[in-house]
Design a binder for these strands. Structure first.
Length: 286
DNA sequence: GGTTCTCTGCCGC
DNA sequence: GCGGCAGAGAACC
């Protein structure tokens, strides 16, 4: 049994993490969004250095984080019924013209469409069987929004309901069988790739991690720390692991290719045995 | 279209 | 580890 690797956490690392956390909170709450100089002054660092520390910890620049925070607030505000005008001021926009300019980019659709249920309008799904057990495939208007694996089909449907509790879930029709067949085929042989659009929904950080996972070719693996480095947040290995665990599109977002640095498979949201099986399948027979 | 802010590469202490 | 400049680019007015 190897000695468990100690995780050295220096005092400065803790302080940096605390500073960044405080800055994040400031951006979530302050109105209007604090400038880089404000944040740096608050942290007691120069703007230059603060910027670097923030990016190293989070993988995002302060500006990008602030934008993501504002987008999230906008979603919440629009979700709480009210008028669009109320929502845009609630989300920290100064004027309606700036809002309409930015909101489409932020939401991926018109604000009204979002408020009226756009993103969560209708999700079609079906449950089937594959060599890994039960599989649930769900699709929104934008693409595949979930691939769940497990033992019990009913449990998978409950998971889907939890993930998209605002959506109208519709059992798959005949056309869906074709999609299901495609996905199952892909799970049986992931190296073939899945040529279908994905509807990826996560925080800015999660989406960066998931994006980075696509750069791990089938048949190989990467460590959590390597992914953290790849997205420019070398100290965020734990956060990377959490983002992998939050992935709801199994196999297509290949979080099974992320393992511990010492080669240990670590965990897998869908069960470590499935991870082992998938990696075995992808291993190139020489 | 000018100004201000953000971001990064590079260097110095 | 931290500060700072230069210069490019984006955002803002």
């Amino acid at each position: 049994m190897p000695i468990p690797t100690p995780t050295p956490v220096s005092a400065t690392a803790l302080r940096r993490a605390a500073l960044v956390a405080a800055a994040c909170q400031q951006m979530e709450q302050a109105e209007p969004t604090p400038s880089l100089a404000d944040l740096a002054a608050h942290a007691g660092l120069s703007t230059f250095h603060f910027h670097r520390v923030f990016k190293a910890e989070t993988g995002l620049t302060p500006k990008a984080y602030a934008n993501a925070a504002r987008a999230r607030r906008l979603r919440d505000e629009l979700g709480d019924a009210g008028s669009i005008t109320e929502a845009l001021y609630g989300a920290g926009f100064q004027s309606s013209s700036r809002f309409y300019e930015a909101s489409e980019r932020l939401l991926g659709m018109r604000a009204r469409a979002y408020r009226d249920g756009g993103a969560d309008a209708e999700i079609r799904f079906a449950v089937g069987q594959c060599s890994l057990g039960a599989i649930l495939v769900a699709q929104s208007a934008k693409g595949i929004c979930a691939i769940l694996l497990g033992e019990d089909p009913e449990a998978l449907v409950r998971q889907l309901q939890d993930l998209f509790h605002k959506a109208r879930l519709v059992g798959g029709d005949a056309g869906f069988e074709h999609l299901m067949a495609q996905v199952v085929g892909f799970v049986e042989a992931p190296a073939l790739g899945l040529q279908l659009p994905l509807d990826i929904r996560g925080t800015a950080f999660q989406e960066r991690v998931w994006q980075a996972l696509h750069s791990i070719p089938p048949g190989s693996t990467a460590s959590y720390a390597e992914i953290a480095e790849r997205i420019g947040a070398p100290t965020a290995a734990r956060a990377v692991a959490q983002a992998c665990g939050a992935n709801r599109i199994a196999v297509a977002i290949p979080c099974h290719r992320v393992v511990r640095r010492d080669g240990d498979l670590s965990g897998y949201r869908w069960g470590v045995e499935r991870k082992r099986e998938l990696l075995g399948r992808e291993a190139v027979p020489s």
